[in-house]
Design a protein around this nucleic acid. Structure first.
Lengths: 239, 239
DNA sequence: GCATATTTGTCCGTATGTATA
DNA sequence: CTATACATACGGACAAATATG
């Protein structure tokens, strides 16, 4: 069976076999990004025919992609009706932030127990965010803020926690569209991220966790109120 | 698929639209269960042709199912080679238990904060497990033990936490096959589950969390050692 | 190392069921 | 109620990658 495939191979593909992507995966990535970028607003129906044609893939392949996106909760699959970009409810936002609290604070605690923190990527994320903010590129700030939090979770060095966080943030982005990269929303968090880095550098883990909790509570509150305002005055329903 | 679409109940389906399952989902459930039951041991390749024929579905439909199972980490998809039932490593087991610690203890803390605990389903699970144990049906005990922990998480009333736990336990089952429903392994946990229920009834949340942590640490240790023993002496590679 | 058989990857066409204007 | 559009599911085809002798 798998035992002896070792030396003979000249162009040996040691592992790329696992890394290479098929068409369905590539399509999934494209769609995931386009949904995140707001190209398909929540509620949009993703037609098999039109999207398949646009991307130059068959409907069969596209359906495999849709299954993956559905499993990530980015689209909802309704039998015999098609797939729709997910429309989050206020309850979804609350649930997502509760999970974020759990994941991020647990990650910090695990990282603190495990030994010295490798803060390089975390610091890089805040610094890039600050640079983007100084230039007024506020939607980049939004992206880099999420990356900062992704790097926080990465400190725990748990593959599953990483993946979980990735999916959670992708889903949360569906709700972020209402804030639409406004300076008022993002600027305060820039400062708070910097503060958190300082605490981590000084090994004030408890304080960092506490700051994180407050951060997330505030962010949730702000997002929720913007979100509910949106629901009261829906933005030009196409139907 | 063949027929089976016969009945055509004239009764209108009000909302089942969201609940109804397509063929791919049904196939996914069947395969998930068969993998959990050990019918396809880790490492087995799932052939599109043979499984498709066995279940009476086309390759296209089956491939959609495979995508879903892959996203749940129950199978690994290797490009141009097919899908294989996942073979967990010791690192996977450690990672899974770390995540379990996070999920279960967080769930208890959330539930404790939220108000009075609704312990009905939790108690039902332990009692059924005890009954099964008294009858010597130890693989049922194994299943009911997992359900007990699923119910613990359900106390937090978070849809995403529930789903997360469901997937985690499904993956963990891949490793449980080495214990193979032995009384020695499961009996002690029966007692500990009962103890945890008692603590919860008396609202000793902190003690319950502590017991939970110890429980999981012990379970992980036992599983890991059985697991490593298995790896040293692989069980009859049947090609 | 090579030729062959097997299996996956991807596409297309089509019949049927379902939802909706 | 009918017509239309679309998703569902199947089966066949062929190229490409992989496994086998």
């Amino acid at each position: 069976m798998t035992s002896m495939r070792a030396v003979t191979t000249v162009l040996a593909n040691e592992r790329p076999r696992l890394a290479r992507l098929g068409t369905a995966e590539r399509v999934t990535e494209i769609l995931r990004e386009q949904i995140a970028a707001g190209l398909f607003p929540p509620g949009t129906r993703l037609s098999e025919e039109s999207i398949g044609e646009a991307l130059g893939v068959s409907r069969n392949t596209l359906r495999e992609s849709f299954r993956l996106l559905g499993h990530e909760n980015l689209v909802a699959h309704e039998l015999n009706r098609g797939v729709f970009v997910r429309v989050l409810t206020a309850e979804d936002v609350v649930d997502l932030y509760q999970l974020r609290q759990i994941i991020e604070s647990s990650a910090l605690e695990i990282a603190g127990r495990a030994g010295p923190l490798e803060l390089g990527p975390v610091i890089a994320a805040v610094e890039q965010a600050e640079a983007a903010g100084a230039d007024g590129r506020w939607d980049e700030v939004a992206t880099l803020d999420l990356q900062f939090h992704q790097e926080i979770v990465a400190l725990a060095q748990s593959p599953r926690l990483d993946e979980l966080m990735r999916r959670l943030l992708a889903e949360l982005r569906l709700a972020f569209h209402v804030m639409h990269g406004s300076q008022e929303f993002h600027e305060p968090y820039l400062v708070r991220n910097r503060k958190m880095v300082t605490l981590l550098r000084r090994k004030k883990l408890d304080q960092a966790v506490q700051e994180l909790r407050a951060y997330l509570e505030d962010a949730q509150r702000e997002l929720l109120s913007a979100f509910r305002a949106e629901q009261a005055a829906p933005p030009s329903q196409g139907t």
